[in-house]
């Protein structure tokens, strides 16, 4: 209904549509562009008391550093305040969370998609309820036992917790992807001589990659974007990026510190930009996978 009818649309409506879209794109994108630009300025520019034109032209930055752009914020965050360590921890956490989630999720999602028994249905409903649990309520249940078991503060604990919290969502998503693969395929394989697991591994998984990639993106996002779990369960030296940024804010009085946080925020946003750039199609298909059927 789009292009064919475009010429029939009244000019006024067309103008309205274009204006609206331009406005939305500005709303969606400008905060990011503004912050990226500002992260190369000094605090007096990015938080200018005089005029926000300073942030664009870098008046104070010129005065303080001699150039219109400065990497001081980045240097301060990454080197002085050890943000590289947090970034490294984030890499470990997200890679582990994504791979473990997908391994458990594909096995479980496959079983749920092929069972057809009542209990499979109830497991899915339980997963839906679990999916709705605010993460911080679960975290408040972890802390005391984790202190007792002496496993608080280290990366593996957070990884396992994030995997578990991620399972309901992963199961639902993979379950719906598996449902879209015809049952004939695994049944052929089993008649041809495979066990259930061989059928899963040799026949189903090779055609399941799009679903796995999409679900993996969302697992990655969950691990990457998490604040509640990592902030509460990691000790200061094991922090990942997001809780690290939050701890920058704690010492906000020091001059320059805010710019460290701004630089860190921009650094943490870059991987997400790249992700959307390359996997836009998969993200869109993942968001709609559950929806279009339900």
């Amino acid at each position: 209904m789009s292009e064919a009818m475009a010429h029939k649309r009244p000019a006024l409506l067309n103008t309205f549509i274009y204006d609206f879209i331009v406005l939305w794109v500005i709303l969606a994108a400008v905060p990011f562009l503004w912050t990226v630009w500002g992260s190369f300025k000094v605090e007096a520019d990015f938080f200018s008391r005089e005029s926000w034109w300073n942030a664009i032209f870098g008046t104070a930055t010129m005065r303080e550093t001699g150039a219109a752009f400065t990497g001081d914020g980045y240097y301060g965050a990454w080197i002085t305040r050890d943000f590289w360590k947090a970034a490294f921890n984030t890499i470990i956490v997200t890679i582990c969370v994504t791979t473990i989630s997908l391994t458990l999720g594909t096995l479980g999602g496959y079983a749920l998609a092929r069972s057809g028994k009542n209990y499979a249905f109830w497991i899915l409903i339980a997963a839906l309820v679990f999916r709705a649990m605010p993460h911080i309520t679960l975290v408040s249940g972890y802390l005391l036992p984790f202190f007792q078991l002496n496993i608080w503060g280290v990366l593996p604990t957070s990884i396992i917790v994030l995997v578990a919290i991620n399972q309901p969502f992963t199961l639902w998503m993979l379950h719906s992807f598996f449902l879209s693969i015809p049952k004939d395929l695994d049944e052929s394989a089993m008649v041809d001589g495979c066990t259930r697991f061989q059928a899963f591994r040799l026949v189903i998984m090779p055609v399941m990659w799009p679903g796995v990639v999409t679900t993996g993106l969302f697992s990655f996002l969950l691990g990457y974007n998490d604040f509640a779990v990592t902030a509460m369960l990691l000790s200061a030296e094991n922090q990942t990026m997001v809780p690290k940024i939050s701890s920058f804010l704690g010492s906000i009085q020091e001059t320059g510190n805010v710019m460290f946080a701004v630089a860190a925020v921009v650094s943490a946003t870059v991987p997400l930009f790249i992700l959307v750039l390359f996997f836009q199609r998969q993200i869109v298909s993942g968001l709609t996978a559950g929806a279009v059927k339900g």
């Binding site: 049944e187 008649v191 090779p206």
Partner: peptide, 18 residues
């Protein structure tokens, strides 16, 4: 198990491995 019955089967939608 199906694999141990030594039969082969042709499915309605063929069940070919894409």
């Amino acid at each position: 198990e199906p694999k141990d019955r030594d039969i082969s089967m042709v499915f309605q939608s063929y069940g070919l491995y894409p």
